[in-house]
């Protein structure tokens, strides 16, 4: 076969110097599918990044995607297919200092308080909080977290650094 030079996409020399592992998946927002996807993400980046980074990535992605699933419209995913589950697009690329992640979904709009800096729910020993940890964990473990909504879709992007600053 004669190689057709024209069909070869032109790459900048900088980009071609290092091929970085990436992951892309379109999935419906339900806990079982999220779980399968996370296990595939783990397999994709195992050996490419440290177990510690992989653990932080998996936790953040679980929190983000399960939030979309949790806030899916009532009745979504039922066998009669009358209400559609939100669809998540997930993309992860390894960069020099961390894993760049982008997620979009067509679920409900994200409330402002998720993205605004937040602290842990109050620790009252007699009545411990059983929720409210998800967005705290996302904010704690990510860098450059940004969000916008456009044409019925949520866009969320962040980075999981390889080394956590200030961590033991």
């Amino acid at each position: 076969m004669t190689p057709i030079e024209r069909s070869e996409p032109k790459r900048s020399t900088r980009a071609s110097a290092q091929v970085q592992p990436m992951f892309h998946r379109v999935l419906s927002a339900q806990p079982e599918t999220v779980r399968d996807t996370l296990q595939d993400v783990r397999r994709r980046f195992q050996g490419e990044v440290s177990d510690d980074t992989l653990g932080r990535l998996e936790l953040v992605l679980a929190e983000v995607m399960n939030n979309v699933a949790e806030h899916a419209p009532a009745g979504a995913g039922a066998p009669d297919d009358s209400v559609r589950l939100p669809v998540i697009h997930l993309c992860i690329v390894r960069h020099t200092n961390g894993l760049a992640c982008a997620l979009t979904d067509d679920g409900v709009s994200l409330p402002d308080e998720c993205i605004l800096p937040r602290s842990l729910p109050a620790l009252v020993m007699d009545d411990l909080p059983e929720g409210g940890f998800g967005w705290f964990l996302i904010q704690d473990l990510t860098q450059a977290l940004c969000y916008y909504r456009e044409s019925q879709r949520n866009y969320l992007a962040f980075s999981i650094p390889f080394a956590q600053s200030g961590a033991a």
Partner: peptide
């Protein structure tokens, strides 16, 4: 091997 915030809540 893995627990998220809903597991913590449980």
């Amino acid at each position: 091997d893995f627990m998220d915030s809903s597991g913590l809540g449980a």
